[in-house]
């Protein structure tokens, strides 16, 4: 079972309290009614399935109920960082030792 840090509650809680909610930073086109089939396909059907870092949404469904964003490594299942919905995508880079670093943050 994973531990996930809810950015709203400010603490790590067990995975049981959370629900996965799909890929993050997929913007709903506006106005959506007018987009063509290719744009709809990209918005609705196509998702990343990377080996490595993935940006995804989680909801603290049995806690504060808030949706938030997370960066997770699909190989180790490690959560690199979580941040509130609506915040800009956090860039993460791998360092030489196989660890991760948030861009713009020095160790």
């Amino acid at each position: 079972m994973l531990l996930i840090a809810c950015p709203y509650c400010g603490e790590e809680r067990p995975e049981l309290e959370f629900r996965h909610a799909g890929e993050a930073h997929v913007a709903r086109p506006d106005p959506i009614a007018e987009i063509d089939d290719a744009a709809f396909e990209a918005f609705f059907f196509l998702r990343d399935n990377p080996k490595g870092l993935i940006w995804e949404r989680w909801r603290h469904v049995h806690g504060c109920g808030r949706f938030f964003n997370a960066v997770r490594d699909t190989v180790s299942d490690r959560f690199i960082t979580t941040y509130k919905a609506g915040e800009v995508r956090r860039e993460v880079v791998r360092d030489d030792e196989g660890g991760y670093q948030l861009k713009g943050e020095e160790r």
């Binding site: 629900r19 709903r28 949404r57 909801r59 469904v61 109920g65 808030r66 949706f67 919905a85 609506g86």
Partner: peptide, 13 residues
């Protein structure tokens, strides 16, 4: 409720 919360929190906050 999850679906409604999703749109309320993330699309129409």
């Amino acid at each position: 409720l999850h679906h409604m919360e999703d749109y309320l929190q993330t699309e129409y906050p």
